[in-house]
Design a protein around this nucleic acid. Structure first.
Lengths: 248, 248
DNA sequence: ATGCTACTGTTGTCAGACAACCAGATGACC
DNA sequence: GGTCATCTGGTTGTCTGACAACAGTAGCAT
């Protein structure tokens, strides 16, 4: 007695569906293309039109195609980033500390910097430089530089060339932006620190431009460690300033 | 003029599906209950059996019911935690999407391994070892080891000691697990590969136990690079090779 | 040119039939 | 009495053929 697992017994429509899905996800049919008619598919697969219809409606339920009455079935474009929100919402939705969130952000940013060093296009490099300059200008003008900072980090996320990563980082950055503004106000941004941040930005952009993933990661980690230390100090001040902290 | 949007024109099966869904989610039919037969539903709704069938298969695709040949349709117990829209699963059929998600997962797992090496408790170490042994036992028994693998990676996520990171990783692992099952079946798991994976798991656990974050990160990256290569090969086979059928 | 009509091709729905399958009942055999 | 094969009824899976609903187009009459 070899393996005596329950015998694979699949419905015809499921088999058809898998085959069609393979054709679609392999690019044989591009978004916007029209699939053959149900009749043609039925003949090609050697099954009845009914099985084809079940397979097609399955694909439609999965969002891969759109069936239009009287016209035909058309391949849809499906972007996973459009459907990531349930994931991020449930992961980032429940109570968390700013430190934990920053740690996750650091992991992602370090990875993104690494990838950016390998993949950034000329366009990305230009945007990185512009964003870094933007931040420097804003802070030297006495502003908080919050926009420039965000722009810089978004540019890195984009330069990493991974849409999922970009989406995830954007969510976290939004969340932190809100959290910071709400809990700590602007006291994270002091002139001395701003100058240092600008230099760190430059170092990161430089490493990415040099195509050195190790250096880029290291520079990013240096940067975010600085952010973390500043955050720690601010939280400490806030705690001692108002009332005695109790953290162990 | 009133609203003159395109008239609502719904397929019969969709209407039926909505009604049935209401009945189920309202508790009129409890998990485990058997729905009326297709024939009975057809008479009750006043439509043909075919429309009923399409509605039922839609509900099955959504995971609300389970259709058993020769028995009937049964309401499934739906766990909100592991519920994913079929769309997200099907999106992973696209190679670039699957690779992008795996890349994000790699970044997170590498960071988690690093943190775990610094923070893991005795309890965490025990769970890591147990999970690694679990995986090895499962694969040697001829199973896919999917449970053991998941358990191992969950243990790392947990050992990193960052709730946000843990939650995020769990979500992404679920997503990949289900997406892979949906699109590629089990052919990711071969005996030779399983042996290698088990060794890689050991190496990771070893590095974490040794409190060496650099080694832990490196071991994890080695592991996930292997996963990536296997994934690439599988997707390639699926796209090119294995059509046993047609074209004359 | 404009608007109506008819036509063609496609998907949506229907009806009936049979095959595949499951569960329980029946009956034969030891 | 217990065990097993077989029968039977009910259910889902698939096939076939037909017609309705819909979209697009060509042709026609005005």
């Amino acid at each position: 007695m070899q393996d005596l697992r329950p015998i694979e017994r699949k419905k015809l429509s499921e088999t058809v569906m898998q085959q069609l899905q393979t054709l679609i996800s392999s690019g044989r049919y591009q978004p916007g293309d029209r699939l053959p008619t149900e009749k043609a598919l039925a003949e090609a697969f050697g099954v009845s039109r009914m099985s084809i219809r079940e397979a097609l409606s399955g694909l439609a339920a999965a969002g891969l195609i759109e069936i239009r009455h009287g016209e035909g079935s058309f391949v849809k474009r499906v972007e996973i980033t459009d459907y990531l929100s349930p994931i991020t919402a449930s992961a980032l939705g429940f109570p968390h500390t700013a430190l934990a969130l920053l740690e996750v952000r650091s992991i992602l940013e370090a990875g993104a910097a690494e990838l950016a060093a390998l993949r950034a296009t000329a366009e990305d490099h230009a945007e990185l430089a512009a964003a870094a300059a933007d931040y420097r200008a804003q802070t030297e003008r006495g502003e908080t530089g919050i926009d420039g900072d965000l722009r810089f980090h978004r540019a890195i996320a984009r330069a990493a060339g991974n849409p999922v990563l970009t989406e995830l980082m954007n969510r976290i950055q939004d969340l932190m932006e809100q959290g910071m503004a709400y809990t700590l106000g602007q006291n994270l941004k002091t002139p001395e620190r701003s100058q240092q941040v600008a230099a760190e930005h430059d170092a990161i952009a430089e490493a990415i431009r040099g195509g050195d993933p190790v250096a880029a990661r290291a520079a990013m980690i240096r940067h975010l460690t600085g952010v973390r230390n500043k955050l720690l100090r601010s939280m400490n001040e806030a705690a001692t300033g108002k009332e005695k902290t109790q953290d162990a």
